[in-house]
Write a protein that binds this DNA or RNA. Structure first.
Length: 201
DNA sequence: CAAACGATTTTCT
DNA sequence: GAAAATCGTTTGG
């Protein structure tokens, strides 16, 4: 089933980030359906999190979508090349978001390979936020889109991830955030080869 | 209006 | 393992 809006509007962004593991992210653009199971996420706790674009309740054109209520997509361009896909959570005016860092390819693998310019399936196809977004065809134009379709949705297909297989760790690429960089806001499925390596760990 | 920087990935040594 | 690629957003003048 497609996750209802009530899944996203809860207030504990860390809990939602953990529960997103094992869910399936599905995109459908121009008739091409692609999907993958979420294996790695990172929580960004808005106003109180130095690593978040919305730290200190900063509010700009770019971050505006994070202030919407949960259930919307926040797509942001990083380093001029990479599209990073986030899930907006919590209620209106609370800028919490969860970065989807990696998925395990399920459907539409051929289409994903084509978008990535590859000819065979490797663990690097969707390991890492920029690579994953490209494989799914997500672009900055999808910012603000609903996560209940028609183009993007997240489904619960009954996959249960054992608590012992969920690992909490520090986030990647946020060293500039000083002490907040040490928060264990990153979650991933232990042993899954599609989890990105990042820089640390 | 101009300058600096980044929630990364890829490629070369 | 290290460095480059590359451009929208943000910040300062």
């Amino acid at each position: 089933m497609v996750l209802p809006e009530s899944f996203y509007t809860r207030k504990d962004v860390l809990k939602i980030a953990r529960e997103l593991l094992g869910k399936v992210l599905v995109t459908e653009f121009e008739g091409e359906l692609t999907s993958g199971m979420i294996v790695e996420t990172e929580a960004y706790a808005g106003a109180t999190d130095k690593a978040s674009h919305a730290y200190g309740s900063r509010r700009t054109n770019r971050t505006e979508v994070m202030y919407k209520h949960g259930g919307a997509a926040y797509v942001y361009l990083c380093y001029g090349i990479h599209h990073l896909f986030n899930v907006v959570t919590n209620l209106q005016d609370v800028p919490h978001a969860i970065l989807i860092r990696a998925i395990e390819p399920l459907e539409g693998i051929e289409a994903m390979l084509e978008r990535r310019g590859k000819d065979k399936l490797t663990s690097s196809l969707t390991a890492g936020p920029g690579a994953m977004s490209m494989a799914l065809g997500i672009r900055t134009g999808q910012t603000g889109s609903s996560l209940q379709g028609p183009n993007i949705r997240i489904e619960d297909r009954g996959v249960k991830v054992p608590a012992k297989d969920i690992v909490a760790a520090t986030r990647v690429g946020v060293a500039y955030a000083m002490d907040d960089a040490l928060r264990p806001y990153r979650f991933f499925i232990k042993g899954n080869k599609y989890v990105s390596k990042g820089k640390g760990l």
